[in-house]
Design a protein around this nucleic acid. Structure first.
Lengths: 187, 187
DNA sequence: AATAATTTTTGATCTGTATCAAAAAAATCA
DNA sequence: TGATTTTTTTGATACAGATCAAAAATTATT
């Protein structure tokens, strides 16, 4: 719990009231490696704050999994468009490692938004850094070689890139696993 | 002005008080085609809501302009990371067409955030749709041919793709102008 | 521990797109 | 309106990375 409250406090000042509302509405859960937390084509009703472990957002293209991104400790995970707009979307969420999370239901989040304006601010600010990350990623995807993409990936995902299977990294980068394998081999 | 207030009202309920605060703090401006609204390596202090015209965000890579994205009527434009975090960044903003905007200074926006919680909500929601767009773009950038990228571009930028020079579209898509020219020619 | 399943590596070939070069077309300017 | 600049098109060639195929290594299962 401390980790979650500490996370909020990096963006806003947490009143005791808000702290306890958050604590009371959040649920602690554990998922085994390989577990599917969210299914495509369904409405995402929960958001997960990772305490320990590693989750992945992916979708299917021509029957093959394409990793959209990876989330680790101290990050929220959900199917963004599905969770925000409460509509179906293409993303699956699964666990790359055994993972423990704090789970928040969308209705509880709505309650928090409606009763605590600082929660709106928190969401605005954290969404802002999400936009920043996406921008950087889009920039680094164009006019770069496969090797440059991989190097950039290792830099930005510095603490977790070695915990992610090669094939998942390759699809995240938009290159084939064969190519990534050769890059790693230094060919 | 109506256009701007109408825009806000699509996300939040505008009180008379908030409406007039917005109106009083916003400044109407016109820029000629080719005008540089914002410079790289400087702090972005203004956000522009386009009334008519077309603006572009771009950066330099190896001395060449790479278009990050295009913004048209009824959209806010700024250098996102620079404006949000008030630090220097790589983006330039220029006008592809003669453009009229409503200009808001970052300090006025901060005032609005501090006095009107619904502005925080507005920012959260509009940032959310920004995240959605970026996600879709990242998806459509991987494992697609140059032709598919262009087709997707024309679909999402349906009303403006014909107003943007070919070379700018090519760099936006991460392909060369020669390739895009051949695609258009149907080769 | 042995077997099965999955993931990664290696090899050979093919192809889409980049690159380099220059002509044609369009836009801008005096 | 003609001259100059910029943008787009066309052509020839080269190469990074995809694809297809299969072996090797790793991981999971009984």
């Amino acid at each position: 719990m401390t980790a979650l409250l500490h996370h909020f406090s990096q963006y806003i000042t947490l009143s005791d009231d808000l702290s306890s509302e958050i604590s009371n509405r959040v649920k602690h859960q554990t998922f085994k490696k390989g577990h599917l937390l969210h299914d495509a084509n369904k409405i995402c009703t929960h958001s997960y704050f990772i305490q320990a472990g590693l989750l992945r957002l992916y979708f299917l293209k021509d029957g093959k999994e394409v990793s959209e991104y990876f989330c680790c400790e101290k990050e929220w995970v959900n199917s963004p468009r599905s969770f925000m707009q409460q509509k179906a979307d293409i993303y699956y969420i699964d666990a790359i490692e055994d993972t423990t999370v704090f789970t928040l239901h969308v209705q509880d989040l709505v309650f928090l938004f409606n009763h605590f304006p600082e929660m709106e601010r928190y969401a605005r600010l954290s969404m802002g850094s999400m936009v920043g990350h996406f921008l950087e990623r889009i920039t680094s995807m164009r006019f770069t070689t496969a090797r440059e993409k991989y190097t950039h990936f290792c830099e930005t995902y510095h603490d977790i890139y070695h915990r992610i299977p090669l094939g998942m990294i390759a699809s995240y980068l938009g290159i084939t696993q064969e190519t990534l394998s050769r890059i790693r081999a230094g060919k």
